[in-house]
């Protein structure tokens, strides 16, 4: 952040207090995670005996990656990770395409019904997923699906236990459409008109002009859709029973319910936390500005 001119330099005493407060808070926010990572390297007995002192936060004693290999031996966690990666990737990428096209059409083009569609898109922002989760389970059991039977394509009903049920409902997102529309609006419309005169179609204008100029909007929407997609829990826990299609978060909850081996539980939670943490630390500036952008939601 820029230092505003005329800003008074803080007194040394005051600065000391601020550092003290921030350090105390940093300990509060970090201690559970440090404990988690450290404990994932220790045998169960040592986790419990270390808990009373500083050793709980230090990788000392009988350190190994046995808990990690234990998790892999017990459950197909590699498969769970793959499922989550597939679901998250498709949701984010397809979401960028679908929502940015809609945002473009809503902010830069004139067509009948535009106002109504815009109103509906904004109205969807007020609906939390929890309010439709239960009827949605019923709804997806009624949806038609193509199946292969004895070499023939037939159709059947019900989307339970599929990838599509984890992906398709989450591609379109009213808030993403809104953010894209807001961003595209800032690109001068004269560019569109010049391109039209040169004979470019609307899709070409979107693809060749609007998209390349909107990197920050794409980054923001990607980050804001990545986290909830990766963290999906309520929905897959209802519609996916098949272990082969289970995402990591649901897989972890099953693992947690069936195991009291804390070392392995901590290894599992560390394993799925670490990648997100690394991505966050690498792109923390982008994360921060995405969240600030989400502040326009209302």
């Amino acid at each position: 952040m820029a230092v505003q001119k005329g800003e008074r330099v803080l007194s040394r005493r005051r600065r000391l207090w601020i550092y003290l407060a921030m350090t105390g808070l940093a300990v509060f926010f970090l201690f559970p995670l440090v404990f988690m990572f450290v404990s994932s390297l220790k045998p169960d007995g040592q986790i419990l005996s270390d808990v009373g002192g500083w050793r709980a936060f230090l990788p000392v004693g009988d350190i190994s990656v046995d808990n990690y290999s234990g998790v892999f031996d017990r459950v197909p966690v590699g498969r769970f990770l793959l499922n989550s990666v597939i679901v998250t990737t498709v949701v984010v990428v397809a979401g960028l395409v679908v929502n940015s096209m809609a945002g473009f059409a809503l902010s830069r083009m004139r067509w009948t019904g535009r106002g109504v569609v815009l109103g509906v898109v904004i109205a969807t922002l007020i609906v939390p997923f929890e309010t439709i989760a239960v009827p949605m389970v019923y709804w997806v059991t009624q949806l038609p699906t193509l199946v292969f039977e004895n070499g023939w394509i037939a159709y059947d009903f019900g989307w339970l236990d599929t990838y599509e049920v984890q992906i398709i409902p989450f591609i379109a997102n009213g808030f993403s459409v809104f953010l894209f529309a807001q961003y595209f609006k800032t690109i001068p419309t004269a560019i569109d008109e010049a391109a039209r005169i040169d004979g470019a179609g609307w899709f070409t204008i979107y693809r060749r002009i609007a998209v390349p100029l909107s990197g920050p909007a794409f980054a923001t929407v990607a980050i804001l859709t990545f986290l909830p997609a990766w963290n999906q829990y309520l929905w897959p826990s209802m519609v996916v029973q098949d272990e082969d299609l289970r995402p990591v978060m649901v897989g972890m909850q099953y693992f947690f319910q069936e195991n009291t081996a804390w070392g392995e539980v901590m290894a599992y939670t560390s394993m799925i936390t670490l990648p997100v943490l690394v991505v966050f630390l690498a792109f923390q500036r982008a994360f921060v500005s995405s969240v600030a952008a989400s502040g326009v939601k209302g």
Binding site: M101, A102, A105, L106, V117, V121, P169, A172, W202
Partner: peptide
Amino acid sequence: MAAPAVLL
């Protein structure tokens, strides 16, 4: 261009 999002 709006159709896919609207439909979904």
